[in-house]
Amino acid sequence: MNAPRPPTEQEKFGRHRPLTDRDAHEINRVEELSYDLKIHEIIAAEVVAIAPDAPLSDALDLLRLHRISGLPVVDEENLVGIISVEDILRALQNGEIHLPVKNYMSADPVSVRASDSIVEAIKIFTETGLGRLPVLNENKRLIGIITKGDITRGILRAVQHDYQEEEVRRYRASHLFEDIVSDRTTLVLRYAIQAGDFTHGGNASANIKRALLRLGANPQLARRCGIAAYEAEMNLIIHTAKGGVLKLEVESNEIVISAADDGPGIEDIQKVLQPGYSTASDQIRAMGFGAGMGLVNIQRTVDAMELKSAPGKGSKLIMRIAMSADDKKGAL
């Protein structure tokens, strides 16, 4: 036979594959929750307890009645022990079920504080193999019992709550317009774009796309707006002296995106509209921009594009995207 060797990962954890990324992601959230959630938030409101001088047969009745497997033993509000089904079984075997609880209970039980994170309880469960822990308040009074089942249920509830919150956020955004009565409601999002700020290049467009999705736009519409906005945003970063303003206006039947700057302006508008025409430096080309395709791209993506410019003064690019009934599922 082989010489003894340390167990493999698979033997230790009983897994046939390493953690997947999804597992890891979900575990992360659960881990987060185990720090966020406090013990008092997840335990049952009522606590069943028994006095140390009560007979073990009473304890057995209480366990049966409440379908639980252990009871805290309380003497004048002070926790003095825990009595479990196993303890009572021992008493039964010994024919001593008539004796008081204190003879068979585990004294000085490990407890947790109500204000602790549930991770504290998880640690103790893992280290000791115990199945239930008494929960004490700041005055060391017993206020409840925590079990592994409480932790599972508490985390499940919180995860469900997370999910509902995002739903609510989406719902609120997508019903924004219904609550506002006016002859013409317009939503305007405005972003200041700095010249040369490649680090944040694309952030405004990313936000525009996200906002449209939250408002209930269909993904294709949000993508088209994002693409047009992104090209316009990069143009402001690459080609202007002082940056400019990127603006998104959501109207009832169209979306208007505009990019305005105050210089340097365009000498020959026909020329900049030619595919491949570019004045970008090699440095900008090395970043993957400035291939002279930006305006061409915008033209293909939007329904109407208008470029106005006065050399020395500035430029304004207006892009219009029509919305069909199919595009607006929510507010849009």
């Binding site: 490649f198 290049g201 694309g202 990313a206 993508r223 993957g288």
Partner: peptide, 9 residues
Amino acid sequence: PQVVRTAQV
């Protein structure tokens, strides 16, 4: 980072 921004859009 623009590669990821582009990808996102």
